[in-house]
Amino acid sequence: MAAKLKGWKEIPEAGTIVEPGNARNYKTGGWRSDRPVWNKETCIHCFFCWIWCPDMAVQVDQANKKMTGINLEYCKGCGVCAEVCPKKCFTMKNEKELTNE
């Protein structure tokens, strides 16, 4: 999952990281054991899941001010979104069961 590591000659002095936000290349989705399944129909686009998601994994359409889904490449499956949702739009489903389905 991790990108190819650099050799010591390619590393900047003092080991500084010169590419801001490159942790995006590190996908944390593999940590997840429960997946939030979003019900689009009942969503009222209040963005509570977006403000509280600790992994910035809630995807939104900025122009139309709509929630569009969960980025499963990063979602760690903590279930905070399911708890804070006032309309209970999320069902936490076990990854293993989802795979079996």
């Binding site: 942790a23 590190y26 944390t28 403000i51 600790p54 992994d55 939104v60 760690k76 905070v80």
Partner: peptide, 30 residues
């Protein structure tokens, strides 16, 4: 208003390795 803030959650990016459900990234984001 939350709808006016959309797209601004970029200072701390996805791919950090704090535990699932950690409160710290929420604080940083806000």
């Amino acid at each position: 208003l939350l709808k006016d803030l959309l797209g601004k959650d970029k200072i701390l990016t996805s791919g950090h390795r704090l535990c699932p459900g950690c409160g710290a990234p929420m604080a940083v984001k806000m």
